[in-house]
């Protein structure tokens, strides 16, 4: 989710600094997915219900906010998804969210798919952790961009009890990948 927000900020940063702030919204078709590893297999789950916005400020700075409902992730197995909701306490902490800024956006004449590092805070299971997320941005048009990012998250650092199968816990580190489509609001 954070990656998505970061991705949204990147396109804004890459474009020329506008006279007024421009806001981009995460469009349908965007996905955030996770991959976790168990001794016997690896599991992937995705969420298509992502909401987020990125704002390009007149001074070239970028603000990003992205979030997704924890109970909207689907790994293709109902039991497993229910287990994930249990360990992440989806009722008490329904959202995983990310807020970020990019203080040094890439110039407009940079590489065609620049990478911007977002300074972000990820809130997951009610625990806020600061992370740096590299985000790759590709402009499809002046008002549309695709941003991609991936970054690791520690379950235990966020106070999440690692799920187990056959008494073997999954690895602490899960990989989050985001592919966000951004469209300028009012554009």
């Amino acid at each position: 989710m954070l990656a998505a927000a970061l991705a949204a900020l990147l396109p804004l940063a890459l474009s020329q600094a506008p006279a007024a702030a421009r806001t981009f919204a995460v469009a349908p078709g965007s996905t955030v997915s996770f991959r976790l590893v168990h001794a016997l297999h690896a599991v992937e789950g995705a969420c298509g219900a992502v909401e987020g916005r990125a704002r390009l400020l007149p001074d070239g700075g970028v603000q990003v906010a992205v979030r997704a409902r924890v109970d909207s992730f689907d790994s293709g197995n109902g039991n497993r998804d229910a287990h994930m909701r249990e360990v992440t306490e989806a009722a008490r902490f329904p959202f995983v969210s990310l807020k970020a800024v990019a203080s040094s956006p890439a110039p407009a004449d940079g590489p065609p798919e620049p990478t911007v590092v977002l300074d972000a805070e990820l809130t997951f299971h009610g625990v806020v952790r600061r992370i740096a997320i590299p985000v790759k941005v590709r402009f499809d048009s002046a008002s549309r961009a695709t941003v991609e990012a991936s970054f690791p998250v520690s379950l235990e650092a966020h106070g999440v009890e690692r799920p187990s199968l056959l008494f073997m816990k999954v690895e602490d580190r899960i990989e989050i990948a985001a592919r966000l489509l951004l469209e300028e609001e009012g554009g």
């Binding site: 806001t23 909401e51 987020g52 916005r53 990125a54 704002r55 603000q63 990003v64 906010a65 979030r67 249990e86 306490e89 009722a91 008490r92 902490f93 329904p94 959202f95 969210s97 807020k99 970020a100 800024v101 203080s103 300074d119 972000a120 805070e121 600061r130």
Partner: peptide, 29 residues
């Protein structure tokens, strides 16, 4: 720390603390 004093999304609904549900989760596990 980054300056994150901004809001771009509508406020999320307040999380519900359902103790009965959490007891059921514990029993299920």
């Amino acid at each position: 720390p980054p300056d994150l004093d901004f809001e771009l999304l509508p406020a999320a609904p307040a999380p519900a603390i359902d103790l009965a549900l959490e007891r059921e989760v514990d029993r299920r596990r």
